[in-house]
Structures are given as structure tokens and as C-alpha cells.
């Protein structure tokens, strides 16, 4: 017994003697550093550097094409002043807002409504869920392409408008009053499932005994919805609203495919305008400034929503 213990001890001593000097520098701290370095480098080059560089450029009148060989010329806040006093900029933000608000509100109401309907057991629930989720899983470009196909002058939508309701065909994508709503329709079609999914997650987390207690307490349906369902689901709904608002705010791909900003500039969103300034006219400095203005707006908006979220949590 004593012999084997001794032998074991000498063996570990030998073992340690071999290992220690070679790898002793390789501490947990070094392991952490070596795992983090590649990510940090990648982040530095594709995210942090462009961020800082574009911030710098937004204070210059540099153009990536015209001034490729000259150093950026510092012009201070001129880009910002010009953009903020330009009516066109405001027009683009109004267009964007007129898209974001109805799209997110309708998606929320529809998605939450569908979630309420689906929040029970019935046969075929799984199949219906899968079908409802399909729009969300498609590429936005694909969605926009086939909606453009359906919404064009002789598309399937107008076929129904004319033959079923006996109305004049609607210029879905080229009427200045209809086209913005067409963007909303497509976005609602695509993103309602997202609202539904998150609502459903919230609904299924409401413990059943609360409803039972309410039933015994003689609470009506509205009472139950207003005082149990809604407050319990609210935090998740707000998160869904934040996601969708931020996403809808930067609408670009669908609008490009569906209307291209037209007719005229009536559906040109802020993102599209930014693209036009930075890569159509190649005013890189001004484009950078516009990018930062957009960033400030969405950050402010998101902060308001997050504050609302925290308010529901603390009470």
C-alpha cells in the first residue's frame, strides 16, 4: 500500500516535471486571448474600422470615385447641415415612417390575433403553423419578385379586381397613393408570421392556473385578456415590435425590386436615398453623414421602445 502510493507520487512528480516548463505560460488567460483574437481582428477590419473611418468621412467632401487619389478635405459639419436643411432628406424619412408605422402595427395586430387563435390544441396545428411560417423563411428578393409579378398591371391581383369586383384595374406599383401601401402589404405578408411566432411564445408561457383562477373568480373573456394575457405577453410583444421597427426602418431590397422608389420618389425610403447618395452620385462624405443621421434616429427610437419594455418589467 505505502509502496504503491510512493510510486504514484514519484510518477506524478516526473510527469509534472516534464509538462510544467513547456506549457506553464499557457494559462486560462492566454487561452482566452487566443480564442478571442481572430474574432476581434475580424471585427476590427469589417466593423470597427469602417465605422470610425465613415464617421471621419462624414465630415469631409470626399468621393470614392472622384477623389480616389486625393486626401479627404475636412469641411466640418457642412454635410450634416446640408442634409438636415434639405427638404428631400425629410421627405425620405416621412416615406419611411409612412411605411414603418402601418406595417409594424398591422403585423402586430394580425400576428397576435393569429397567435391567439393558434394557442390551443387542435388537429393540424403543426401543419398550419408550418404553412404560416413559410413567408418569413423566403428571401426578401424572392418575395418582392413574385409580388411584383402579381401586382403588375395585368397581374393576378388586378385580374381579381376586374373580374370579381368589376372595378377598374389598380396601379399597385405605379400610383403615388397606392404604391406605398403595396410595400406595406408585401411586408405584412412576409413578417406577420414573425409577430405570430413571438406572440405564441409569450402566450404559451402564461400559466394556465391564472386563467382557471380567473374563471372561478367570474372574470369575463375581455377581463381575462386585458388583465392576464396582455400584461403577461407585453414584454415579448415589445421585443417583437423593436425587432420589426428596426428592420422595417431600413427597408431597401423589397422596395428596390417592387417600385424602385417610384413613382417619382414617392416610395424612396431613407435607405434607398442613402444608396443613391453614396453609390449613385458617389458623394461618399455626404452618404456617410446620412448614414449617421439614420443611425441616430433608429437608436433614439429603439431606446424609447426599450424604455417602455423596462417599464412593463418593473411593474
Amino acid at each position: 500500500m505505502a509502496d504503491t502510493q510512493l510510486a504514484q507520487r514519484t510518477r506524478t512528480a516526473q510527469f509534472e516535471g516534464q509538462i510544467r516548463p513547456r506549457f506553464s505560460w499557457f494559462t486560462d488567460r492566454w487561452i482566452a486571448i487566443s480564442f478571442l483574437t481572430p474574432t476581434m481582428l475580424l471585427l476590427l477590419f469589417i466593423s470597427i474600422f469602417p465605422l470610425v473611418w465613415s464617421l471621419y468621412l462624414s465630415f469631409t467632401d470626399w468621393s470614392v470615385i472622384k477623389d480616389a487619389n486625393t486626401a479627404p478635405q475636412w469641411i466640418g459639419t457642412a454635410n450634416y447641415l446640408e442634409l438636415l436643411t434639405d427638404n428631400r432628406t425629410w421627405q425620405r424619412f416621412v416615406v419611411t415612417g409612412q411605411f414603418v408605422v402601418p406595417a409594424v402595427v398591422i403585423e402586430l395586430l394580425l400576428g397576435f390575433g393569429i397567435a391567439l387563435l393558434l394557442n390551443r390544441k387542435f388537429t393540424g396545428r403543426g401543419a398550419i403553423m408550418t404553412l404560416l411560417l413559410i413567408p418569413m423563411m423566403l428571401s426578401p428578393i424572392v418575395v418582392a419578385l413574385f409580388w411584383r409579378f402579381m401586382m403588375q398591371g395585368d397581374g393576378v391581383l388586378n385580374y381579381y379586381v376586374v373580374n370579381l369586383f368589376g372595378l377598374e384595374p389598380i396601379l399597385w406599383l405605379s400610383d403615388r397613393y397606392v404604391a406605398p401601401w403595396s410595400l406595406v402589404i408585401v411586408d405584412v405578408w412576409m413578417w406577420t408570421p414573425f409577430m405570430m411566432l413571438i406572440s405564441l411564445a409569450g402566450l404559451s408561457a402564461v400559466p394556465n392556473y391564472l386563467y382557471e383562477a380567473a374563471a372561478v373568480d367570474r372574470a369575463g373573456t375581455w377581463f381575462r385578456f386585458r388583465h392576464i394575457t396582455l400584461p403577461m405577453v407585453m414584454p415579448l410583444l415589445l421585443i417583437a415590435i423593436i425587432f420589426r421597427t428596426m428592420d422595417a426602418y431600413k427597408l431597401f431590397d423589397q422596395a428596390v425590386v417592387l417600385t424602385g422608389g417610384g413613382p417619382g420618389r414617392f416610395t424612396q425610403t431613407a435607405s434607398m436615398y442613402l444608396y443613391d447618395v453614396a453609390f449613385g452620385q458617389f458623394n461618399t462624405g455626404e452618404g456617410s453623414a446620412l448614414g449617421y443621421i439614420m443611425l441616430i434616429v433608429i437608436t433614439a427610437l429603439a431606446n424609447l421602445l426599450i424604455r417602455a419594455l423596462n417599464a412593463t418589467k418593473s411593474t
Binding site: P207, Y209, L210, E212, A213, A214, A215, V216, D217, R218, A219, H227, I228, P231, M232, T315
Partner: peptide, 21 residues
């Protein structure tokens, strides 16, 4: 009868208090 029509009180194991009230 439905639970509301029975006029009974139920105390749940989990208490079932309305959390936001």
C-alpha cells in the same frame, strides 16, 4: 355549470395570483 356559475372559491397550490396586480 361553468366555474363562474358555481359560486365556489378555489385556492391553488401555486396561489395563482395575478402577477401585475
Amino acid at each position: 355549470l361553468s366555474p363562474a356559475e358555481r359560486d365556489v372559491a378555489f385556492v391553488f397550490q401555486s396561489y395563482a395570483l395575478y402577477p401585475r396586480k
